[in-house]
């Protein structure tokens, strides 16, 4: 059996801002081909965690190892070859074409002027094909629907060719069909291309069905396990105040208390 390869390992991590910790005691590790959702109520620190893992903001304490190396030991351009991100903030210029945007994913590998090599072009074409974006390549981003733009952004992350991909709420603003479409694409990306994918979401039902692991941010234990184990241990029952919604372990969904 081949040796277990850990893409990301997080040990007793505290995240937050200078004056206060948003969340503490976060522990988990992920291997290639694993799709993991981060869930939790609003304001619990999901986005902060994702930004901390993506080296976009400093951690407070604890350890983050990406590909067995501490986050703080990476220089920016090496880290860009390990981790790509899809954020909730809109991209600054919606005037970029789909092709231009996906091409930007190759920046960590190109020379000072950003000239593309044959390898770069191969990755760009592969990303475009995997996300079925051929018909859109010449379109401007402001001409796309939310669902299409999200696919383009994920394709850009794929073109960056990193073992780890972080996504902040990739399914917000999408209808159910497109939510499922995006999550299925992520699952496919993880399993077919041996990526480790970590994303925050409020779609707990879908995450339970599609993810290999789930990290629940609850402000105390922050349980991390495959969804079935979390259901068995009753971790979802206490996620929301029980007078409003109740978790049904049989179906793996939340029901509104009538």
């Amino acid at each position: 059996m081949e040796e277990q390869k850990t893409t990301i390992e997080v040990k007793s991590l505290s995240i937050g801002y200078k004056n206060y910790a948003v969340a503490e005691n976060i522990n988990f590790e992920l291997q290639p081909k694993e799709l993991c959702a981060i869930i939790g109520v609003n304001g619990i620190g999901k986005s902060t965690l994702l930004r901390t893992l993506g080296k976009l903001q400093p951690k407070l304490s604890g350890e983050i190892l990406v590909e067995k190396q501490l986050l703080e030991n990476y220089n920016p351009s090496d880290f860009a070859k390990q981790t790509s991100v899809v954020l909730t903030e809109p991209i600054a210029s919606k005037n970029l074409t789909v092709k231009e945007l996906i091409t930007l994913g190759r920046q960590p590998y190109t020379n000072w002027l950003g000239s593309l090599t044959a390898t770069d072009k191969k990755y760009i074409v592969e990303s475009i094909q995997s996300f079925e974006l051929e018909e859109f390549t010449g379109k401007k981003c402001h001409e796309l629907s939310d669902g299409q733009l999200q696919r383009v952004l994920i394709a850009r992350a794929m073109a960056q060719d990193t073992p780890l991909i972080l996504l902040d709420e990739p399914t917000t603003h999408l209808d159910l069909y497109h939510k499922v479409q995006i999550l299925k694409l992520l699952q496919q990306l993880a399993h077919q291309y041996s990526k480790t994918i970590l994303f925050t979401t409020h779609e707990i039902d879908l995450a339970i069905q599609l993810c290999d692991k789930i990290l629940i941010l609850d402000g105390q234990e922050n349980p991390f396990a495959p969804p079935c184990e979390l259901i068995k241990e009753g971790c979802f029952n206490t996620l929301f105040p029980s007078e409003m919604v109740k978790f049904d372990a049989k179906t793996g969904t939340f029901k509104v208390n009538k």
Binding site: R51, K55, P90, I91, A92, L104, Q107
Partner: peptide, 14 residues
């Protein structure tokens, strides 16, 4: 070119 995506994205591109 990286700044066209916004500063956070630019940072994530190295």
């Amino acid at each position: 070119n990286a700044f066209l995506l916004g500063e956070n994205y630019a940072q994530s591109l190295g």
